[in-house]
Each structure stands twice: as structure tokens, then as C-alpha cells.
Design a binder for these strands. Structure first.
Lengths: 342, 342
DNA sequence: TCACGAAATGTGATCGATCACATTGCATGC
DNA sequence: GCATGCAATGTGATCGATCACATTTCGTGA
């Protein structure tokens, strides 16, 4: 592949003049035209490695992605990448299946070797935080999570508030026994949603049963739902509402409830979280909490730009999610004997 | 950040010796220990830019992702990235919302500036092919698509065979009027699935109605389903089966059919494509065609490695997808008057 | 003890861009 | 006609690694 000297020779100018053409410095139109022609003829593209070496700016951002191809992380990642591109940054990804400390360290190591100017952590995983906290990374790290830890930049959607919205809606419908199907224990977002559920129940003086821990995947929602119906924990003599920490587990729940002959929302109301594009087509359509992941990704990049420009990042305005009402929730039917059994 | 000379000075050796330690050349254990200590003390990480400059190997692969965060592409991307990491390659992404020629050119331009050793195109988009075909990229390009074009490496899952499996299953159940909800016109995979549907119908001498074009998203499946039930094109006097080009559109279809009071599979059978984790929890659980995206991503990297090593890539063994039978398909009930109306 | 070859280490050039600074070209004013 | 100033262009150093080659160190056998 041609280099800047080849271009200069062909155009009959010095390499510096070619550099000026590349960087929009003042060059006489006639000269610029000759250089441009040479560039096209040689199919020349400046080497970003050489450029990064001397300017000490890589224009690259490292993105650490973990785990499964879930809707939220994937959306955030794409949106972030889009925003980064618009700002003139390249994104290099380091994905990992398991989130042990070793994998995290090696991912960070490789990215820092690339002299990325910042790190982005897409999945808020408590292990990931601990792993990174022990490293001297020397560049800003931004994450999409809710419980602002010291030392990390964070842009987030208010999971706590979202969960409260969902649970309050159920309480307002008259539900008094509201279960929670939680995301995995390692997830910061799952913890926040649980906290919101718990806070809202406690604020209303309602009982708080231990949350049921799932995997984010529909299968776990189904397994939990099957167990709940088997033991009768949900339905006529049990809970009349379930708040699921994401839509995928909610569809598993709906399936299990249907299998057990329970009607939604007749026998139990179900609320999800995320508003994935399919949730409006669930059977029944799912009441859920909408998160704007595209906006999240864009805001992450915005905040990052502020820090990279040496400005203090603005107060991390947490976006508030929105409750989307659909057919999976309905008023609880007050049964005279429920109070006794609860 | 420290460089190799700083480390050399601190360890009391030459920069070349440090380089040897980094590259596992022969260094006396005592010397190596001193160098390692200096590296740790300075928190030194070799600059991949400087390394790339002199070795003329970037160890980077450019990945071009387009469009929405769909399950298949996301899974493939993660799997590919994982495989690349295992092989010692970094992946740089260039995503784009629209797939016009200009966006594609600029994405390729940026990646080639990074001196990526290969390009990976995740979403097989006919416009993407045309856009890239016009560029002299000078590095191997691999794509996950089915209809092998000249000049592109391709690893794929046999969409054509998968579609035939699905349609043959419907035919064997006695269905004679089988509609197809197709993916977007720009999608190579969508075209292959349509071709499979068409081939199987023609092989059995069954009528081929024009396919209904969706967007891959559930909403489009719902809209198509609503229109089909409104006009009576599906149901008692119309089609008794629908082959949807992906699972998301299938859930939209199921929703629309349920809204119209049609039972699945009683009044119409539905088959999807992809086997996303939720499809077993649809109502009813969806018969679908399973694709192993993780395997696809890994095989893409494998093929790429062969080419990068100068070997001829092995015959691109197309993986064959697998039909997953679930409750959304059942034998057609032969109606005496159906033949007349068909 | 010394020569010898292999192992270990050091020296200077190099990759391809930008930066800092030097030089040339050209129009303007006196 | 010539000094002046600005615009345009050129020259050499630089970034941080590896490569090619030179040199030193070390262990071994005569």
C-alpha cells in the first residue's frame, strides 16, 4: 500500500504538502488538485497507526461487551457506536463470554495497548467493576449503570424509578401481593430494579416476599413461573401480580401461567421491563417499562466527549423510563378471604 | 504513559532487550525478571500503533454492522468477536444506520485507514455488496450470506435448505396453501428463504402466492397478519399455513391471528425462522428453524484465518439448519370445498 | 590459559505520519 | 528597485516499537 512519500513523489511536492492536503491546511488549489489526483491514483489512505504515534491521539474508544446478545446491551452498543462515529472516534470491541477477573484484565490490557482514549463498559456487572477497580487504567471509564460508584463515569436510565413506576401501577390496581422475578445477582441493573420494587412495596406497607432470581432469559421466567403455579404461590390464594425484571423473562412467565390454566390478567397481572419490540405482541400484550437505549448510548458518548475535552461532565441527568400500559395488567379482584391467607 | 525506553532505563538494559522480553525471545531469567519488574512498576503497555507501524501487521479486523439490533446479527457478531480474540485479533466496528453507498464507503475508508487485515460484513445486504464491490479494498472480505458472489469469501448457514425444511413440514402436514411473510427486499437471507419456500412449493406442484414483505420486526408481522385476516386470505377459505422468515415477525402474526379469532394451529399453522430463545414460549410455542449463530461466527473467523495464512479456504461447508417442531403447526383439516376455492 | 562458538545483549535504521522550523515565492508599498 | 510581510512549500526530527546486524558475555574443551 502506498504511503505519503509515494503520493508526494507522484504529485511532485513534499510529503509535508501532502500532509497539509490531508489535514485541510492552506495549500494552493492547483497544488491540492495534483495531490488529490495522486491520492486517488495510488488508492492511498493515511495510516492511522503512524498518525496516532506522532499525535499521541488514537481517536479510538474501547468497548467491553460481556455475555449474551440481549436486546438492551446490543441496542446500547449500536447506539454508542453510532454516536462515536459521528464524533470521529473508532470503537474497538473486546467481548468476553465469562466475566472472571482474568478475562476482564486481559480485555482491558489489549484495549489500553491500543491506546484507546476511554473505556466503555456496556453490561453493568458487579464483577466487572471489581475487576476494573483494581487496574490502573489511566483513561476515563464510562458505564451504563445506575448506582454511581466513585471513580466511574456513568450515564444511566433510572432503573429504580422505573421499577417503582411498574410496582406503583400494580398497587394502584389494587394488588397487594406482588412478586418479583429478578435478574441475575451479578447485575447492577437487576439490583436497582429489585430495590425499586422493594421500596415501593414498603412505602405502601405491603409484604415483601424474597425475589425469584432468573437469568434474563425467557427459559428462566418459565421455570420460575412453573414453580410458582405448582406451589400455588401465584393465583387465587397467592400473589395476584408479578413484576418481571425484563420482558424476556415475562414471556416465560406468561407461558407458564397459561400452561397452568391461569389467565393474565384475570388471575394474575404481569409487568415487564425494557419494552422490547416484541412485547406488544405477547399474549396478552405486556405492560412494561420502556427504556430508550438508543438515547442512552448517545448520552454516554456525549458525556465522554465532555470529559475528553477536559470539561467537567454535566450533572449526569438520569433519564426516567416510561410505563407502557397494555393488557397484561388489570385491577385485582378483591376476594374476601384473601386478607386471611396473605 | 511509559514507553519501551523508560522501561529499558529503569531495568538497566537496552530497549531491544525489553522488546525481547515482550516477544518471548531468549533473555536470561535474571534479566527478564528485572525487565518484568520495571514493566510492572511503570504500568507499561506496548503501543500497538508503533508495533503495527514497523511490523506492517495491525492484528485488527474491521467489522461492518448495519441496521437494527436483531438477534441473529448480534449473536453472530459476538461469536465472531470471541473467535477473533482467541486468534489474537482485535475487532474494530463500523456501524451504520442507513446502508447507502456513501455511508458504506466512509465506513470502509475508516477501517482501511486502520490497516485492518480483513473486513467482515455481518448483515448481508445487497446494497452493501454493490457498495463494496466498487471499492478496491485490497484485503479479504468475508460475509455471512448464502448466495456466494464472486470475490467475497462467505461462510453461511443454508437458508435455502432451512426454508425448504420448514415448508416441506407444512406440506407433509397436508397444507396446500402456504403463504410466506418475507424479510426486507434488501436482505440476501430473506431472498434465500423465499427461494426455498418457492422451490418446495413448486416441487410439490402447489400454488405460489406473492410473498408478503415485512421488516424483520414483529410489528410488520402483525400488520401483515391483520391485513390477511381482514381480507380472509388466511383461515377457513384461504391459506392454512404461513411460513414467516423470522421468529419476530411470526409473533406478530400470531398476535394478529389471535386478534381475529383464528386459532393456531387449529385454523392456521405458523412456522418461524431462527429459533430465538423466546420462541419456545410464544403462544403457542413456535415451530421454527434453528440456526447456530455462534457456530457461524466462529466459522467465519476460521475461514478468515485460513485466508490470512495464505492457505486456500476449505470448501465453504454450509451448515444446515434444523427444524424444531412445536405446537404452532398441526395437520391441515381437509375441507371438501377448499379445492374449489384455491 | 586461551580459543571458540553459542547465547545474550546492544546499536542504529526503519515504519509513515505530524510537528517545529526554515526557506521560497509573490504581491504590495514606498 | 527593493525591502517587507504573508502565503505556500520544504527539511529534518520525532513518536515507539521491531528488524538487521554488531558486539559482548559466557561456558566449554584442548
Amino acid at each position: 500500500m502506498a504511503n505519503i512519500t509515494d503520493v508526494a513523489k507522484l504529485a511532485g511536492v513534499s510529503h509535508q504538502t501532502v500532509s497539509r492536503v490531508l489535514n485541510d491546511a492552506t495549500v494552493r488549489p492547483a497544488t491540492k488538485a495534483r495531490v488529490d489526483a495522486a491520492i486517488r491514483e495510488l488508492n492511498y489512505r493515511p495510516s492511522s497507526a503512524a498518525r496516532a504515534l506522532v499525535t499521541r491521539k488514537s481517536n479510538a474508544i474501547g468497548l467491553i461487551a460481556t455475555g449474551a446478545p440481549l436486546y438492551g446491551p446490543s441496542s446500547t452498543m449500536l447506539a454508542f457506536n453510532e454516536a462515536a462515529r459521528a464524533a470521529g472516534y473508532q470503537v474497538t470491541i473486546a467481548s468476553m463470554t465469562s466475566v472472571d477477573r482474568e478475562a476482564m484484565v486481559s480485555a482491558v490490557e489489549v484495549l489500553l495497548g491500543q491506546r484507546v482514549e476511554a473505556l466503555v463498559l456496556i453490561v453493568a456487572d458487579v464483577a466487572a467493576f471489581d475487576a476494573i477497580a483494581g487496574l490502573e487504567i489511566g483513561v476515563p471509564l464510562i458505564t451504563a449503570e445506575s448506582s454511581g460508584r466513585e471513580g466511574f463515569l456513568s450515564v444511566s436510565i433510572d432503573q429504580f424509578a422505573g421499577a417503582r413506576l411498574a410496582v406503583r401501577h400494580l398497587i394502584e390496581l389494587g394488588h397487594r401481593n406482588i412478586l418479583h422475578v429478578k435478574g441475575p445477582d451479578w447485575s447492577v441493573d437487576a439490583a436497582e430494579r429489585e430495590r425499586g420494587w422493594r421500596a415501593e412495596l414498603e412505602a405502601s406497607g405491603l409484604p415483601v416476599a424474597p425475589p425469584l432470581v432468573g437469568t434474563w432469559l425467557a427459559d428462566s421466567g418459565y421455570a420460575i413461573g412453573a414453580e410458582l403455579t405448582r406451589t400455588g404461590a401465584v393465583g387465587v390464594r397467592g400473589a395476584t401480580a408479578i413484576f418481571s425484571a425484563n420482558d424476556q423473562m415475562a414471556i416465560g412467565l406468561l407461558h407458564a401461567l397459561a400452561d397452568a390454566g391461569l389467565r393474565v390478567p384475570g388471575d394474575a397481572s404481569v409487568v415487564g421491563f425494557d419494552d422490547i419490540p416484541e412485547s406488544v405482541h405477547y399474549s396478552p400484550p405486556l405492560t412494561t417499562v420502556r427504556q430508550d437505549f438508543a438515547d442512552l448510548g448517545a448520552r454516554m458518548m456525549e458525556t465522554l466527549l465532555q470529559v475528553l475535552d477536559g470539561r467537567q461532565p454535566l450533572e449526569p441527568a438520569q433519564a426516567t423510563p416510561e410505563l407502557i400500559l397494555r393488557a397484561s395488567t388489570a385491577p385485582a379482584i378483591p376476594l374476601p378471604n384473601r386478607e386471611v391467607n396473605a
